[in-house]
Write a protein that binds this DNA or RNA. Structure first.
Lengths: 141, 141
DNA sequence: GTATACTTGACTGATTTTGTCGGGTATATA
DNA sequence: TATATACCCGACAAAATCAGTCAAGTATAC
């Protein structure tokens, strides 16, 4: 499965944006400074976020990014899928040649990984950006 | 997080053993042939499984491995932890220097990854080898 | 027109994964 | 007791992936 820094940074950055949810756009430079993430790396990540219509961009001075929708509508699955391609545990396509093609034992674990995938996606589907920042402020009190 | 071929192979191999659950030990050679996994790689994996007391080894001709306990007692968490060291999503130890130390925004996502870890471990904790082979035979019918 | 900030693609160093190689040692069986 | 079988162990290496940089843009506010 795939759950890398790119995904974590994407969530962090968007949560940051949601937290500082001004009307005006947020520049990657600000996020970079606040969250300690490389600016150029953020650019890469936000390029994908934009393609997936999670954020909108505004160019030029005073430009930046704004969330495309309210924090409560943006589910984490969408974010993670955007930057990581997908959350995939199944790898049986490759292995169908060897062992997975039901000769004696079919890929016994096939279903397991599928279930896990569903389980994880469920988890992220239930979480929105709003949940994250709510939790964070609650804890700070 | 970590969920690699090693883990998948370990589960496959042990499920294979559980399925062909004879009294006599199962040789890695057989598993290798049945499941299409490299023998030498299996040796590496089983070395760890043995260290973690998931299997017992019997050396010599007619030797092999036997499950250390009944399939229903062997939970998948144990297997995956054995071969992969651990299932870890949290990476905040590294990041505590930058951004994660509650200056303005503390590591917003800290709790999220922790919850995910728990969620995944729950999943694997509830599954035993028995569940896998039961499911498999059910489906074959 | 200039500084700001987004846009894009190629590239690279480091790390991890997925194994292999080559040597062992123990033991059942003939 | 010889021998084949099977476990045991550490070093090594190719391939893939990750995390991030570099370079060269384009659009826009002021």
């Amino acid at each position: 499965m795939k759950l890398t820094s790119k995904g974590r940074y994407a969530v962090m950055a968007l949560a940051d944006m949601a937290q500082f949810n001004n009307v005006s756009p947020v520049s990657l430079r600000d996020i970079s400074l606040r969250q300690g993430i490389s600016l150029v790396f953020l650019e890469q990540i936000f390029s994908k976020l934009k393609k997936n219509e999670i954020v909108k961009s505004i160019r030029g001075t005073q430009g930046g990014y704004v969330l495309n929708g309210s924090p409560s509508q943006i589910k984490l699955t969408k974010i993670l899928n955007a930057v990581n391609e997908e959350v995939k545990t199944l790898q049986c396509k490759k292995e169908i040649k060897k062992g997975c093609n039901g000769k004696l034992t079919k890929c016994i674990t096939h279903n397991l990984w599928y279930e896990l995938e569903v389980h994880i996606n469920d988890f992220f589907e239930k979480k929105s950006l709003q949940d994250l920042i709510k939790k964070n402020t609650e804890q700070r009190i």
